[in-house]
Design a protein around this nucleic acid. Structure first.
Length: 895
RNA sequence: GGGCGGUUAGCUCAGCUGGUCAGAGCGCCUGCCUUACAAGCAGGAGGUCCCCGGUUCGAGCCCGGGACUGCCCACCA
């Protein structure tokens, strides 16, 4: 885009690849662990190797890169740790699916060949998402990309596992687990989700051993009765008290079942009698352990009935067995009732299949002791979680934490450093010495390795310079769905192994939903590929809403997408809003055209003036004020502050003082918003400044003199580009190259310094009055139907300093004569044939009525003694001023 | 069954510690191709701030109750 003068439109597609290449070449993404000064680091939530960029990645990418660029521009040594996750189950499933399509399977290949195949797959498809991040403009540390399964990382994983074993946190036990028949592995509680299903509830009669009658139980899983070892009733349930201690006979099996009393049973639910299957129901398991019941495992890990189920049923699949059991019971007339039953059933978040609870020999990790310091770290503020609601969630979950099943029956993952021989178990960093040792085939839960991410990526357990410089990381930005799965565990592991919290701040960003409020998901057809927004691409049907023409997305460009995502983000879930993306694209275009105007008109003197100005050049200024210490009020004080004429400001034109003041406020507001993780505010405040202050008013006012006195315009442009850069990096970097004095890359320049001294209440008030006057004038002209091009004769008495700009922007010609229209701003319009005075009379009458009503309201308020007595003096004063102004205007109309 | 959040203009959303807080973008209406930008500019219409009580001189903003809605956690056969 060298022909700035020619092209009237910013075209992202032409610019972005070139600009990104410059950043990479210059190494803006590199971080020096040995340098001086503050550091700032973020560890990216490692996307799955097999993953492709979705909206969540894009939003999080925009958030993280905005933070990273902002802090880089503050002069800090910045590192954005990049990498991918080997994602055990997810990846294994994908490759298995591929194998299936080839008519093969992992069993056919064998473990070693299978794992080799997954690595191969990773080489082929693994880098996609990293390339996609570049399209967003993300300046991650591409030179040091990590993988949760690379050699050094694996070393850290073994180190941690062994240490946890030695410290007594990790142990092996027969315990109830969530068995996922889909992936044929145990999964953790966090990977289980409820799904509503319609089942059949069967009421089954269990005859009493005494021969006198029977006890009826209700169940949706009749096949599990083969593993029943008791019947439980509530201790206070009078219907059954006399039966407690007696026995029932398990139909089909003949086992004697003790009737026990346990408060878990709800007397008013079902029949009030509960069959107890300790080996296949989590509750029954607990009850069983409380009462010392036998655990009969009748369903195996292969999803078939075991030998313990009985010869007759062994080998059947679960559903098959259920049908057979029901048929048999029916034949024996033991089913007294059956009805459809809708309830929530646990399913695997991985495979989607229904969880089969069963007792299995697995490796577990005791969490309560590790959780304690991680709870304390959040409570005392060493880790701050934003927004606050998420902090509550974290604490509640941590306080009720349960043991974590960490072993998985998969092939793709960190294999447990555990070996067995006869009755012996060996856990160690190196294989055991001696013969006949067999290694445990299981691998660790993916989240076990992810939990080490912030320090394992920096070289731990070696005491590296990187670890020294960048640990703890500064911020973790993530979606809320992995707060427990990942974030909480990182805090525990970081404290236990790296000696400190893994991050100072956790920012939990929004989840972006489809326009109809559903989840964005490829399978539902509600997902969007962020690259389709950047480059233009298919717009799915659910997004064909609103004013957008049907068909593909236009090429919004990376800046537009970043801006839009930040602008629509919030502390809660939000619906995708294409208009916000478009708004970002418009902003980029607006900046482009404003730059065109300023740059192409700039004269040599302007450039000198801009370059000599002390505050002018972001690349030369020192560091900005710290967070929250900017000393700049967000808006002019309601009550006029004392005028503060400084330096030689009397020489500086009013509008220049004004724009510098507005800029000072904008910088403070944008910086505050970024520091507070209020990215929607940061984006929209930037937009407001560029449109509302810079383009709509300042540039319109100074346009005629840009060729001769454009120094301030150039200064402001430079600072604006720098201020905007963290949010919309491409267009600002591109324009930077065209701005006089814009040496080097904007990405490595300084963010503009905060300038509270530039805030000029007087200038803001004075120019604000002029703006109000122009607006009123334009509105009046439009309402009166005055010809747009007509230049009206007028008196501008009350606006000495701003008369010229009011006249120009309001199309007036200063003149003397009879004032026939008096506007609220004091401007008097003289007689001319351009104005329809009949219409003006009507307008004046309407205005009089409104004024009288408002005056009455104000008078009423001031006549209220309690208001005058109890409201703060400033509020009462403001009301009096308002009344005076209204009366003045009314006098003007009447006079 | 608990817990948390939301309900503000036709749509998507801002509104900090109660006093110009009734806003933005888009859409809609009107007028302008004004030599930075027509994917632009100027002007305008449009809201009982979910409902009912309460506190207060004054309440989208605080308190109580209710309605609707979303999410999280939870082992009711």
């Amino acid at each position: 885009m060298s022909d700035l003068a020619e092209r009237t439109r910013y075209v992202p597609a032409e610019v972005e690849p070139r600009v990104f290449a410059r950043w990479l070449e210059a190494g803006v993404h590199r971080a020096d662990p040995e340098g001086e000064g503050e550091t700032f680091s973020i560890a990216i939530p490692p996307p799955n190797v097999t993953g492709v960029l979705h909206m969540g990645h894009a939003l999080n990418g925009a958030v993280q890169d905005t933070l990273i660029r902002y802090h880089r521009m503050l002069g800090e040594r910045v590192k954005w740790i990049l990498g991918t996750d080997h994602a055990g189950i997810a990846t294994q499933t994908q490759v298995e699916r591929l194998l299936a399509s080839e008519g093969s399977s992992r069993e056919a290949l064998g473990r070693e060949a299978f794992v080799a195949r997954v690595w191969e797959w990773r080489e082929t498809y693994g880098g996609t998402i990293v390339e996609q991040l570049k399209r967003l403009g993300a300046t991650c540390d591409y030179d040091h990309e990590r993988f949760t399964f690379d050699e050094a990382y694996a070393h850290a994983v073994v180190e941690v596992f062994v240490a946890l074993f030695e410290q007594g946190y990790v142990y092996r036990d027969h315990y109830m687990v969530n068995w996922d028949p889909g992936s044929r592995s145990a999964i953790s509680d966090l990977e289980v989700e409820e799904r509503e299903e319609t089942d059949t509830l069967y009421c089954i009669d269990y005859p009493l051993a005494s021969g006198s009658g029977s006890l009826t139980i209700a169940t949706v899983r009749p096949e599990t009765m083969l593993g029943d070892t008791a019947i439980a009733v509530h201790p206070d349930d009078e219907r059954y008290t006399r039966l407690v201690g007696e026995y029932a006979i398990l139909p089909l099996v003949g086992r004697r079942l003790k009737i026990i009393a346990d408060p878990y049973v709800k007397p008013d639910f079902g029949t009030g009698a509960l069959k107890i299957t300790p080996a296949h129901d989590p509750n029954d398991f607990e009850i069983g352990r409380r009462h010392g019941l036998e655990e009969v495992s009748v369903i195996g890990e292969d999803g078939r009935m075991t030998a313990a189920a009985g010869e007759r049923w062994a080998g059947m699949e679960v559903m098959e067995c259920r049908a057979a059991v029901v048929a048999e019971l029916r034949e024996q007339r033991l089913i007294s009732r059956q009805e459809p039953y809708v309830h929530d059933v646990p399913c695997s978040a991985r495979s989607g299949e229904r969880i089969e609870p069963l007792i299995s020999l697995q490796w577990f990790m005791r969490m309560d002791e590790l959780a304690a310091p991680a709870i304390a770290a959040v409570r005392d503020g060493r880790v701050r979680i934003t927004p606050e609601g998420q902090q509550r969630r974290y604490l509640e979950w941590m306080e009720g934490i349960r043991p974590w099943c960490v072993s998985r029956q998969l092939w793709w993952g960190h294999q447990l450093p555990v070996w067995y021989r006869n009755g012996e178990t060996y856990v160690g960093r190196t294989p055991p010495v001696g013969d006949d040792w067999t290694r445990d085939p299981d691998v660790l839960d993916t989240w076990f390795s992810s939990a080490l991410w912030p320090f394992a990526t920096l070289g731990w357990p070696e005491p590296t310079a990187e670890l020294e410089a960048f640990y703890p990381t500064s911020v973790l930005s993530t979606a809320r769905d992995i707060l427990f799965l990942w974030v909480a565990r990182m805090v525990m592991m970081g404290l236990q192994f790296a000696g400190d919290v893994p991050f100072r701040d956790v920012y939990v960003h929004s989840v972006i939903q489809a326009p109809d409020g559903r989840r964005m998901s490829k399978s539902l057809g509600t997902g969007i590929d962020p690259l389709d927004l950047i480059d233009g691409g298919p717009r799915p049907p659910v997004f064909q809403t609103g004013p957008h023409p049907p068909g593909d997305f236009p090429a919004y460009g990376a800046d537009g997408v970043r801006f839009g995502l930040l602008a629509m983000s919030s502390t809660q879930d939000v619906r995708f809003n294409e208009d916000k993306i478009a708004q970002g694209t418009q902003l980029a275009n607006k900046l482009y055209n404003a730059s065109r105007l300023i740059i192409t008109r700039a004269s040599g003197e302007d450039i000198d003036a801009a370059l000599q100005s002390p505050q002018a050049l972001p690349s030369e200024v020192t560091s900005s004020a710290g967070p929250g210490l900017r000393g700049v009020p967000a808006e002019p004080a309601a009550v006029a502050a004392e005028g503060r004429p400084t330096e030689a400001e009397t020489d500086v034109p009013l509008e220049d003082r004004w724009i510098l003041s507005r800029l000072a406020r904008a910088k403070a507001r944008v910086a505050d918003a970024i520091d507070a993780y209020e990215f929607h505010h940061a984006a929209l405040r930037l937009y407001d400044f560029v449109y509302g202050d810079l383009c709509d008013w300042y540039l319109e006012i100074v346009k005629p003199r840009l060729g001769t006195e454009g120094g301030v315009a150039l200064r402001v442009l430079r600072e604006t580009l720098a201020m905007a850069h963290p949010i919309i990096p491409f267009v600002t970097e591109e324009l930077w190259a065209h701005v006089p004095g814009g040496d080097g890359l904007l990405a490595t320049s300084r963010w503009p310094a905060q300038a509270p001294e530039a805030v000029d209440e007087d200038a803001e008030r004075e120019l604000g009055d002029a703006i109000d006057a122009i607006r009123e004038l334009r509105s009046w002209r439009d309402g009166m139907g005055v010809r747009p091009g007509a230049v009206l004769p007028a008196q501008l008495d009350g606006h000495a300093a701003t008369a010229e700009m009011i006249a120009r922007l309001g199309r007036l010609r200063p003149a003397d004569g009879e004032v026939v229209v008096r506007l609220a701003s004091g401007i008097g319009i003289l007689a001319s044939e351009e104005v329809d005075f009949e219409a003006e009379r009507r307008r004046t009458d309407e205005r009089r009525a409104t004024l009288r009503a408002e005056i009455q309201r104000a008078q009423g308020k001031l006549a209220n003694d309690r208001f005058v007595a109890r409201a703060p003096a400033a509020v009462v004063g403001a009301e009096r001023d308002k009344l005076a102004a209204l009366e003045r205007e009314l006098d003007g109309l009447d006079g």
